[in-house]
């Protein structure tokens, strides 16, 4: 198993586990996702100067 830790990171130390790949692409909370998509369709994203 590969351990990844990003330098100077406030992130979490992770161990890559390819068994978790099986969860990709699934919608676990479709109602919440639907609400978010409705908001994004109506209001888009705020303007941001990067």
């Amino acid at each position: 198993m590969k351990t990844s830790e990003f330098k100077n990171s406030k992130g979490v130390t992770v161990v890559v586990n390819k068994e978790l790949n099986k969860l990709r692409g699934r919608e676990f909370f479709p109602e919440k996702l639907k609400k978010v998509n409705e908001i994004l369709a109506k209001s888009g994203l705020p303007k941001l100067d990067r």
Partner: peptide, 12 residues
């Protein structure tokens, strides 16, 4: 400590 899939979209 977490596990992640290899795209870093999923954490456990």
């Amino acid at each position: 400590l977490s596990e992640a899939d290899d795209t870093f979209l999923i954490y456990q």
